[in-house]
């Protein structure tokens, strides 16, 4: 246990330079987007010189870049994400959207693991059977499908033609609710985006589990377990699966972070009010404080996801704790 704890501490220490690097890059890129004052003037054409001066000192634009970076970072670390150019604090704009993004991604993750692992095992145990070929072909289809296209097709079929499901948003703002009440309404809104996300990531997981399982089932320790008289189910689901799932944990953990950052396409398709969609909205109006805030929040989420992955990996594979 002690080794697991030192391992955890070491992983956390490793996160700090990553966080600093991302913050520097984010800050530099957003500042390279243009003179913030010019951007503000696009929306407020009639600023008096006094107001302009106030804005400059409010955003510390009279100070050098590095000083502004440290100010910004300090504020961020104390929880103050700044003020949106469209009014209101950045935090107020972002925080509620984190929840909706996580709701979508976590649900899709649970479903894709729940479906992907058993299907992958089945496929490996019945290599080259008809069902294996069917699974593998569907998986290739899923891996190569752009989410936005799949999303649009599903909206066309289930919302536009069949009127079975809502086409956008995460809840109906006022009655009538889908399927009669508020909670079912939320579920109705979740179905299509979760379906798209699940389909795409289940394909990856099935392929990984199948490949790893095939590899592991060939190993001597599986043969040795069989030669020792262990039950086939014990061999498959304990001895082999634990070995096959360990690399999948890494991939899923890393891609989960990637999903958070890469969700804008899907969230925009379904007008899903999450971080990705918020990012797209803020970027199109050059609301740089919001863009910065979202980037940093996603960075944090990715780092947390990576830490979770590392821990899970160390928990599963005792050899990792040593290195």
């Amino acid at each position: 246990m002690a080794s697991l704890l030192t391992y955890l501490l070491r992983r956390i220490l490793f996160m700090i330079p990553v966080f600093i690097a991302v913050s520097v890059i984010t800050f530099l890129i957003t500042n390279a987007a243009g003179d913030p004052i010019k951007l503000i003037r696009l929306s407020f054409k009639t600023l008096t010189p006094t107001q302009l001066q106030q804005l400059i000192s409010f955003y510390h634009l009279d100070q050098p870049l590095y000083a502004r970076y440290f100010q910004w970072l300090g504020e961020f670390l104390t929880g103050n994400l700044g003020i949106s150019l469209q009014g209101g604090t950045v935090a107020d704009k972002i925080v509620p959207w984190i929840g909706t993004t996580l709701e979508l991604q976590l649900l899709a993750l649970v479903f894709s693991l729940g479906i992907g692992i058993p299907v992958g095992i089945y496929s490996a145990k019945h290599q080259y059977s008809k069902s294996d070929v069917a699974v593998t072909s569907t998986a290739i289809f899923g891996v190569s499908m752009p989410t936005f296209w799949l999303g649009i097709m599903l909206i066309l079929i289930f919302s536009v033609y069949l009127h079975w499901l809502p086409s956008f948003g995460f809840i109906s703002p006022y009655p009538p609710y889908w399927w009669g009440n508020y909670y079912l309404d939320a579920i109705a809104h979740l179905i299509l985006p979760v379906l798209v996300l699940t389909f795409v990531s289940v394909a990856t997981i099935v392929r990984l589990i199948r490949a790893n399982m095939l590899e592991v089932l060939r190993q001597d320790y599986v043969l040795a377990a069989r030669a020792s008289g262990l039950k086939e189910s014990t061999i498959t689901f304990r001895y082999a699966l634990k070995n096959a799932v360990t690399p999948v944990v890494t991939i899923v953990g890393l891609s989960f972070g990637f999903l958070l950052a890469g969700a804008p396409g899907l969230e925009t398709t379904f007008t899903w009010p999450g971080l990705g969609y918020a990012f797209v909205l803020a970027a199109t109006v050059l609301d740089l404080p919001v863009v910065q805030g979202i980037t940093m929040i996603i960075t944090l989420l990715v780092l947390i996801a990576n830490l979770g992955t590392d821990l899970m990996y160390a928990y599963l594979d005792p050899r990792v704790r040593l290195s």
């Binding site: 001597d220 320790y221 040795a224 377990a225 020792s228 008289g229 070995n243």
Partner: peptide, 30 residues
């Protein structure tokens, strides 16, 4: 009958022991 009447020792102990389970687990399972 496997393991009970006939036991097997394999060539390479690096690959014939499961890396993710303790010695105790692998023995007591059998």
């Amino acid at each position: 009958l496997r393991g009970r009447k006939i036991g097997v020792v394999f060539q390479d102990p690096n690959s014939s022991l499961n890396p993710l389970f303790t010695v105790g687990k692998q023995l007591t399972d059998v």
